[in-house]
Design a protein around this nucleic acid. Structure first.
Length: 971
DNA sequence: CTTTTCACG
DNA sequence: GACGTACGTGAAAAGT
């Protein structure tokens, strides 16, 4: 976790804000029994839900509560059953028509956006007791909303109870009325009297009246039991002596735990303004028309439902709402009711619609009607269908829209007859297919859709909407504003599961979607989407839009509930158009340079192969690790072979070959050389040329936004984040990445960003100072760890320190370090020990991070991104692996967050400065630009400034720029 | 379709 | 005493 210098979610000081603690579980039963049966339109019983919802409304609207927690029992047994198994054992199962209401009531709390508290092993009463005492200690008045007498023990002059059914306040006087003693003696009375409902035994024959009398007389339960012999009445005396232990157990059962490990700090129990759309939708599903009217009236009155927070302040689309209102005012139209800016109709059933309409749109009139419907709704899900997966090569063949859950359409715009031959000879169409099906042609369809897609007041929701943005941009349509369900899922569950739509549909909606393969078939018989018959295409495409919108409703709430709004809104969402633009820009690649390198590599491969065959004594496939292993270890009988654990095959990776080459085995060095050239040729020089887009003459990679567990981007088709640089031969490939005439390639990279982050997050003053002083960090750590003055530093000592520094970032192990440095594990372990002794804060930080991962299942970056860690609960090697991930993820992830923030700021900063540089690539700590020759100086200064100032993490960030005619020169 | 290897940060 | 390892990716080729 961030240390003191992290952007703090500063807790407010105890400020005397009254705290309302609602006994949710208790209330459910009382509301159920108090209210007549009541069903919502679909037949689900909701009488307790109704009572509960009215109570929440009263809390917010009448009591104007600012600090609230709704507290529930956890399902399982609690700690009381450990010492008294019969506790609450005879409770009957809840009635049939109450059971389905529990889940709906939890939904109610979410819909009102109130803190919902429950904790396994504890009853709601224990959590209430804990919070009540904590708030009381801060001098805050506490109101417990409950009519459960078991809570009366908590009452004092600062803690009162409110009986929500009778609307009656309970203070010390009322408690005395009930129990005949002051609140602090209530426990003793209950221990004696017992409770048949909860199966608390007490002392047989003693009820509340007698108990109160005895406690008043003797002062306390302990005193009474000790002096039981003094009691005059023989029967009562005997019962007390015989059942003293039962009374003591009863006291433990009745006494509430005041030190429960509550899951949310008391300071964070705050009323947050609900998402009005979600709340109204939810109320609509329940059929609570009178409550909807009340909510709307409240909002009309003061713009908020609860006191405090501004409307939509926490909601993800707050900006959109404001812009929409502004736009509506400007053009004199209004797309939303003036009083309640609810845009999702309250009768929309979320997430499960009661009817499904997936329709084909093949006329301009029908399309215009859908556009009108989208404008009215204010939120639409959009999806595009194309004839390929790479956006820069694919063509648009259809568009789907969804305006509310269950309602979606498919608009084919470039479908052809399914019987059309796959490839017209030489691209010519001999007209042997039937005419295309009836549809609105592409350009006409886009003209009609444009007002919707570009309308600043209509949110366009997509699943990986970057792709759709690009498809529309190709036709001059700039889609904005946007939201992305894939990225919403990513900020919540990055590293825990995938974020593809099919998986999320299953996960969140329980829906199995129509698979793409099902529609297009697979393998050789696969057809492009423009050949899919319209009925099938509609079923598939409309479903995608429908599911996207339904996922949006769920995930929008989940992001909020998971406190990930800031990461989503400040990093992921604004990044989408930036990366979309960058991919479309593409990078200019000189085919001729690649061709020459390819020929050169081919020549050397032929030579090497011949030499290797001679040395092996026979011909074989050098590219086959299996055959090579057999040659080296079975036929040539070389020692030092390792077998892979999985298949038992000989390992022939570079570490093995290198060892043998050092022993003077000539074939091994030759194979290593062969491998290098084979890799460079097959992966880079032969392939990159083919990736040049014939239309733009440039290479357009695709950056995956939700692929990594740490928040990094990844690059595919082709991967431009792993272009060689480490060897001289490999580096030549960068000569092919060139600037267009009149331009230069500029590379700007962060210097030592991950080590800076370590220094900051772990709070290591010595490292922080070194970075502030701008000294060589590897030499400095070498000097500190190995006790060598800087002026006597050798390159070998510095190399070792550098390896340790990198090791730190990877979650160091003595094995890994020893392998990296080619030293014994024991020696490596000693280095690590010395390092930790010099920088003790580091070891403490690592322990803390591991513990956090084990406790929560995830770790966080400095900016709050969650990185889920799989396997942290396991044992042995798997656990160690998970621990190293837990150490690495916050560091790597923070660096990823920082460069993303810089990328978001750059387009605006460049435009404001009148500069025309284009951002081309991101390589984790580096950004690549194409810059007009005349603007090189100004761009270099500005980009460095923006990158260094992307966010203030405490330690200074440093960015360095290089310029040249190619990437090789710029780096 | 999985495994091995190797390119990058 | 042996596990099986440095963290994060994607692509090509071989081998099932």
């Amino acid at each position: 976790m961030p240390t003191d210098s992290a952007p703090s979610t500063a807790l407010p000081p105890a400020d005397g804000t009254p705290l309302y603690l609602v006994d949710g579980s208790g209330f459910i039963f009382r509301a159920y029994h108090a209210l007549p049966p009541l069903n919502r339109p679909d037949g689900t019983p909701v009488n307790a839900v109704m009572g509960f919802t009215n109570m929440l409304m009263r809390l917010l609207a009448e009591l104007k509560a600012d600090a609230v927690a709704i507290i529930f029992d956890s399902k399982r047994l609690n700690f009381r059953n450990e010492f008294y198994p019969d506790y609450k054992a005879h409770r009957p199962e809840p009635p049939e028509d109450l059971r389905p209401q529990f889940a709906i009531i939890r939904e109610a709390v979410e819909a009102f956006n109130l803190p919902r508290i429950e904790l396994e092993g504890y009853e709601a009463d224990d959590l209430i007791a804990t919070y009540a005492r904590q708030a009381r200690a801060q001098g805050r008045p506490v109101t417990i909303v409950s009519s459960d007498k078991d809570l009366m023990q908590l009452v004092d002059d600062g803690i009162r109870m409110l009986d929500p059914m009778k609307n009656k306040m309970i203070g010390p006087d009322e408690v005395f009325e009930k129990f005949g003693v002051a609140p602090d003696k209530v426990v003793d009375v209950q221990a004696l009297a017992g409770d048949s409902v909860d199966n608390v035994p007490g002392v047989p024959g003693i009820g509340i009246k007698t108990a109160a009398q005895l406690i008043t007389e003797y002062g306390s339960l302990e005193a009474l039991l000790e002096r039981a012999g003094e009691i005059k009445q023989a029967g009562r005396r005997q019962k007390l002596i015989e059942n003293a232990d039962l009374a003591r157990i009863s006291k433990r059962l009745v006494k509430l735990e005041e030190n429960a490990p509550v899951p949310v700090p008391v300071e964070e129990l705050k009323v947050r303004e609900p998402d009005v759309n979600r709340l109204l939708s939810w109320l609509g599903v329940q059929g609570f028309r009178s409550i909807i009217a009340k909510v709307k009236a409240e909002i009309a009155a003061d713009g908020t439902l609860a006191d405090g927070a501004a409307l939509h302040a926490a909601a993800g689309d707050g900006g959109e709402q404001q812009r929409r209102d502004l736009r509506a005012a400007l053009d004199g139209r209004s797309y939303a009711p003036s009083a309640a800016p609810a845009v999702v109709r309250a009768d929309a059933h979320i997430p499960r619609p009661d009817k499904v309409e997936h329709v084909l749109v093949d006329t301009e009139e029908a399309l215009a009607a859908w556009v009108a419907e989208g404008l009215e709704a204010g939120v639409v899900a959009v999806d595009t269908e194309t004839d390929g997966l790479t956006p820069m090569r694919a063509s648009l063949v259809g568009i789907s829209l969804s305006t509310r859950p269950g309602r979606a359409c498919y608009i084919p715009v470039a479908h052809i007859d399914p019987s059309t031959p796959k490839e017209g000879a030489g691209g010519l169409d001999f007209g042997d297919g039937a005419p295309p099906p009836k549809q609105v042609p592409l350009t006409r369809a886009l003209d009609i859709l444009r007002p919707l897609l570009e309308h600043p007041g209509v949110l366009k929701v997509g699943h990986n909407i970057k792709f759709d943005l690009q498809m529309f941009a190709k036709h001059g349509v700039t889609v904005a504003p946007i939201d992305d369900t894939m990225l919403r899922s990513y900020v919540i569950g990055g590293g825990r599961h995938g974020h593809g739509m099919d998986e999320l549909a299953q996960r969140h909606l329980g829906v199995t979607t129509i698979s793409f393969d099902e529609v297009t078939r697979t393998g050789k018989s696969r057809i492009t989407f423009d050949r899919v018959p319209l009925d099938k295409a509609t079923a598939y495409a409309a479903e995608d839009a429908d599911i996207t919108l339904r996922l949006w409703h769920v995930l929008r709430h989940d992001v909020l509930a998971d406190r990930m709004v800031t990461v989503y809104e400040t990093i992921e969402r604004p990044l989408v158009p930036v990366v979309a633009r960058m991919e479309m820009e593409g990078v200019l690649v000189d085919r001729q340079v690649l061709k020459e390198l390819s020929n050169d590599f081919a020549k050397r491969l032929v030579e090497l192969e011949a030499e290797i065959h001679v040395l092996a004594g026979r011909t074989f496939n050098v590219g086959s690790p299996k055959q090579l292993g057999e040659i080296l270890f079975d036929e040539m009988k070389l020692s030092g072979g390792k077998k892979s654990a999985k298949t038992g095959a000989w390992s022939t990776d570079s570490s093995v070959l290198e060892e043998l080459a050092d022993l003077g085995i000539p074939i091994c060095q030759k194979v290593m050389d062969w491998r290098q050239f084979a890799k460079l040729k097959s992966t880079y020089t032969d392939t990159l040329g083919e990736q040049i887009n014939p239309g733009t003459g440039r290479v357009h990679t695709s950056f995956a936004l939700a692929a990594t567990s740490t928040g990094r981007l990844s690059s595919t088709d082709p991967n431009l984040q792993n272009i060689p640089i480490r060897t001289e031969e490999g580096r030549k490939i960068r000569r092919a990445f060139v600037a267009a005439p009149g331009n230069r390639i500029m590379s700007v990279d962060y210097s030592q960003i991950e080590l800076r982050i370590v220094a900051e997050m772990a709070g290591i003053p010595a490292l922080q100072q070194a970075f502030r002083d701008g000294i060589d960090i590897h030499a400095m750590t070498a000097s500190q760890v190995f006790n060598v003055p800087l002026d006597q530093m050798t390159s070998e000592i510095r190399r070792r320190a550098k390896a340790i520094n990198f090791g730190i970032i990877y979650g160091i192990s003595s094995f890994g370090l020893s392998r990296q440095l080619g030293i014994a594990a024991g020696e490596a372990g000693a280095f690590i020990k010395a390092y930790f002794e010099r920088f003790p804060e580091l070891q403490a930080y690592m322990e803390k991070t591991k513990a956090e991962a084990a406790r929560d299942g995830y770790v966080r970056t400095l900016l709050g991104r969650k990185c889920w860690i799989q396997g942290i609960q396991e044992k042995g090697a798997r656990k160690s692996y998970a621990e190293r991930q837990a150490i690495n993820a916050p560091i790597q992830g923070t660096a990823a967050d920082i460069i993303k923030l810089a990328m978001i700021k750059l387009p605006g900063a460049l435009a404001d400065a009148g500069l025309n540089a284009r951002m081309l690539l991101q390589v984790h700590d580096e950004l690549l630009f194409e810059v007009p020759e005349a603007e090189v100086e100004a761009t270099s200064a500005l980009v460095r400034q923006v990158m260094e100032g992307a966010v203030d993490i405490g330690i200074p960030l440093v960015a360095e720029a290089g310029v040249g005619l190619s990437w090789a020169e710029a780096h």
